[in-house]
Structures are given as C-alpha cells and as structure tokens.
C-alpha cells in the first residue's frame, strides 16, 4: 500500500498507458486545432444523443461513472519485473453506458486528468479525446453491438477482442498525430508503439472482459440498458467494423513498411501538414499574402480546420437525414 499512500493517483501510474495521454508541445498547432474541431463536433453530437436517449438521471450517473473510470484506472495488477498494468476503460464505458454516454464519460475523464493532474495537455486535448474517447467507443461498442444477441461467452470474447483493438487503434492514431506533427520518426514509433500496446491491450482485454462478466452476473439489466442507448445502431456496427479493419490492416502494414505509409501520405499530400518543423509547415500551408509567419500558419491552420469542420457537419447531416428517412 505504501506505494500509493500519499501520492496522487496519476503520479504513481505506471508507464503503461501513459503513452496515450499526449502532453502539450508534442503536437503542432494545425494538428491540435484540427483534432479539437473534430472533438468539439463529436462532443456536441454526443451531448445531443445522450440527452435524447438517457433520462434525467444522466448527469449524476455519467459523473459518477467518470469518477469510476478514474478510480478503476488505479486498480493495477502486477505483470512482471515491477511493471503493472491497469485499465484504460474506454470500451468498458461504451459497453455498459452506451456509446454516446461512454464518449462523454471518457471526455470528462480526459478533461479532469489534463486540468487537474496535467496528465495530457490542454491544447492537444482534442486529439486525446478522439484517440481515447471516439476510437475506443467506435471499436468497442461497434463490435459489441454486432454480437449483442449471442451467448454471453461469445459476447465476452468479442468485448475482449474489442478492448485489445481499441488500445491498438488509439496507439495507432496517437502515433500518426505525433508523426504528422514532426515529433517522431514514423519508422521507429509505429513498431515501438504498436508492440508495446499489443501487450497493454492484452491487459485491457482481460480486465474489460472480466469486469463485464462480473456485471453480467450481478446486474445484467445495466448492460441491457446501456445497449439500448445507442441509436443509429447499424452505423455503430459499420463504423466499428471499419475502424477495426483499418487498425488490423494498417498496423502491421505500417510496422513492416513505414516507407510505404509515408509514400501514401505523400501521394495524398497529407504529409506536408507536419513532417517538417512546425514553422516551415510547407509552402502550401501558409497564406500567400501573409508570408511565412506564425500568423500565416495560424490562419492556414484555421482554414484547414474549417474545411474539416464543414466535412464533419455535412457527414453528420447526411447521417441524420438518412435516419429521419428510415424513420419516416
């Protein structure tokens, strides 16, 4: 116990898992802003959906569940050689509370870790929310939803696989954001991050499956209620499947042939966004009449972010109108 006594929880967190909370200074401004815009759109949709599908009990429930995730992350288990593993919790939150509430709960956890414990940055919080909130909910809930009518053994197995994949997905996204910011070398960071998180993911899978099996035996109705809170069920399944496929296909590909990924990024023109130092962000990434100044970079970043925002809004509207169409 003495290891824990008197320390704040985040300070005694093992190195395991710490790699996913990006601190400020590791992502450049354009990437940070783009991720924040995505995260804001995500939060706005999640708030709207959660309000629609949860009753007025939602606020205390989600708040206490966020505190639960934070506390559950303190429960560690010894792995080997003095290291220990612990839960990240994204999949557990999405499976038990439904994906939208799960996303909001993870957002609250990430916000508190950044605001109070400096575990993860403020300017890069958007990226952290997308990596640990959206990706985990998408993969976790999407895969779980596809087997919701199966036997418990199958459901638990899928929860485990989803937990592992979600950690891999978050690690992949983190690596790509760091690489696009020019903070890491892709050919080193992808193999390193993916192999470390393949191990962390096993811990996540075992703990998540064991926790869900415990809840299924003691309060099964909680999980049933969570599953009914998604809305857009087929979209979650499809989204989860696509995200899982991307992780499954891209991780080994990127590990084995980072140059290939780099080439693809170059072909798309994406690589120019970061690769170089934040200030020489590429000729295209400055606004002509402002020259190559920080202001120009900011304006270019904001323009880029606006484009992304418009795309997100259009996609969201397309989804909504399709949903209305199905209902009508």
């Amino acid at each position: 116990m003495s290891a824990i006594t008197g320390h704040i929880p985040s300070a005694q967190w093992s190195l395991f898992g710490a790699e996913l909370h990006i601190p400020d200074g590791f992502l450049n401004l354009p990437i940070s802003i783009v991720c924040w815009i995505g995260a804001i759109a995500l939060i706005a949709i999640a708030v709207q959906r959660a309000q629609r599908t949860l009753d007025e009990r939602q606020m205390p429930l989600m708040g206490i569940m966020a505190a639960f995730i934070f506390a559950a992350q303190m429960i560690n288990f010894p792995v080997a050689g003095g290291t220990s593993g612990h839960l990240l919790g994204g999949v557990l939150a999405a499976v038990t509370l439904g994906p939208w509430a799960g996303i909001l709960v993870m957002t609250a956890v990430i916000a508190v870790q950044a605001l109070l414990f400096q575990d993860g940055g403020l300017l890069v919080m958007g990226a952290n929310i997308l990596n640990m909130g959206l990706i985990t909910a998408l993969i976790g809930y999407g895969l779980y939803r596809s087997v919701i009518n199966q036997r418990p053994a199958i459901r638990l197995a899928v929860v485990g696989v989803a937990a592992w994949l979600s950690v891999m997905g978050a690690a992949l996204a983190t690596s790509l954001q760091l690489w696009l910011s020019g903070t890491v070398a892709l050919e080193v960071v992808i193999p390193a991050m993916m192999s470390v998180h393949a191990l962390i993911g096993i811990g996540e899978a075992l703990i998540t499956a064991a926790a869900v099996s415990f809840i299924l035996r003691t309060r099964p109705e909680i999980i049933e209620a969570g599953a009914q809170r998604s809305g857009l069920d087929r979209s979650w399944v499809i989204g989860g499947a696509i995200a899982s496929l991307i992780v499954v296909i891209l991780s080994p590909l990127a590990s084995a042939d980072p140059d290939g990924l780099e080439r693809v990024a170059e072909d798309i023109g994406f690589i120019d966004l970061g690769q170089s130092a934040p200030y020489e962000i590429i000729p295209d990434y400055t606004v002509p009449f402002l020259g190559e100044t920080p202001l120009s970079t900011i304006v270019a970043g904001i323009i880029g972010a606006l484009v992304v925002a418009v795309v997100i809004i259009l996609v969201a509207q397309a989804l909504r109108s399709r949903r209305v169409g199905v209902r009508g």
Binding site: L61, I64, M65, A67, F68, A71, A72, I75, N76, F77, P78, G85, H86, L87, L92, T96, G203, L206, I207, T208, A209, A210, A211, V212, S213, F214, I215, T218, R219, I222
Partner: peptide, 17 residues
C-alpha cells in the same frame, strides 16, 4: 491476476452505479 483485477473493476462499477 488480470481476472482478479477485472472482477474488482466490476465490483467497483456495480457499487458506483
């Protein structure tokens, strides 16, 4: 050991809920 930790997480979940 991971399973024990998982059951503790489940226990904590139910108590929190």
């Amino acid at each position: 050991r991971a399973q024990v930790a998982g059951h503790m997480v489940g226990q904590l979940f139910v108590r929190s809920y």
